[in-house]
């Protein structure tokens, strides 16, 4: 088992290299002064990109903060909504369960543009268009299906026996949930939350449609910079944009040290 764990570790490290290597030129570009083809490395270095982003009048800080606040709120809400849904779907069998799962998955099957057009009209009427709260709400559309489905599979692996043991020991239904179920599904909740965070963090179209240019997020700056001509600014933005995914990968690597019984983020044992 140690051997298999080690090879799984090697595989993951390899994946990490494959994922991060294409980002390396971005990191170099963000610190480049002059970098001409066909030089392997920039001829000179500068902090021009970072200075431009942090300069007064730049909307970079505002965009990063908006993105963080929205993604964090979306993560929390998507997990809180997805948890009971996943628990119900994973634990109980009932008629039309397939239909319910299909309806939950519908928001990620239907192209977001199609549904968001309608949502936009409703949000204008409700005064939610062009607001942070409106953007937060519309980000739940592509994230809740993921948290619900991930948590469904987490709960489907559970038998409910530990909760029964807790109940006979004197725990009420809420106590059993809080003290037994939640600690047991915590790694699965972390994975679901990570998905929600990354989806919200990289959302562009929904933010533009509902935020209407008033709510500025990081992807919006990135898109406009990418259509410009300055590779240094674009690369610097891209580095910041890629940061959460890289951090998540590093966390995953940490979780998968040999002998860790919980396996890869608790989704299942790798070995």
């Amino acid at each position: 088992m140690d051997k298999r764990n080690r090879s799984a570790g090697i595989a993951l490290a390899l994946a990490a290299v494959l994922v991060t290597t294409p980002l390396l030129p971005l990191a170099l570009w963000s610190f480049a002064g002059e970098w001409r083809f066909p030089d392997l490395l920039p001829a000179s270095w500068s902090l021009r990109g970072w200075e431009a982003l942090l300069a007064p009048g730049s909307r970079f800080t505002e965009a990063v903060l908006n993105s963080l606040v929205i993604a964090a709120a979306v993560t929390a809400a998507a997990v809180v909504i997805g948890l009971p849904a996943g628990m119900a779907l994973g634990t109980h069998d009932f008629r039309l369960k397939g239909v319910v799962i299909f309806i939950i998955l519908l928001p990620i099957l239907v192209p977001p543009l199609a549904s968001t057009m309608g949502i936009h009209l409703t949000f204008i009427r409700l005064g939610l268009a062009d607001t942070m709260f409106g953007v937060f709400l519309v980000h739940l559309v592509p994230t809740v299906p993921y948290t619900a489905i991930i948590l469904t599979s987490v709960f489907a692996e559970r038998t409910g026996e530990l909760e029964e043991a807790a109940r006979t020991l004197g725990a009420g239904p809420w106590q059993a949930f809080w003290h037994v179920t939640l600690p047991q599904v915590a790694p699965g909740v972390a994975v679901a939350g990570l998905f929600a965070f990354l989806i919200s963090w990289s959302q562009y179209i929904l933010t533009v449609l509902i935020g209407g240019g008033t709510v500025i997020t990081l992807p919006m700056l990135l898109f406009s910079a990418a259509s410009g001509t300055d590779p240094v600014i674009t690369s610097t933005l891209a580095v910041v944009f890629a940061l959460p995914a890289v951090v998540a990968l590093l966390l995953a690597l940490r979780y998968l040290n040999p002998g860790n019984e919980r396996g890869f983020l608790g989704v299942g044992k790798v070995s």
């Binding site: 026996e161 109940r167 006979t168 020991l169 600690p183 047991q184």
Partner: peptide, 20 residues
């Protein structure tokens, strides 16, 4: 009456200790 108010303790076939 719900199980937690019965003063009935149960030991199962599996130990079912809380792993955390």
């Amino acid at each position: 009456v719900p199980p937690e108010r019965r003063r009935v303790a149960m030991v199962f076939q599996k130990p079912l200790l809380f792993p955390h």
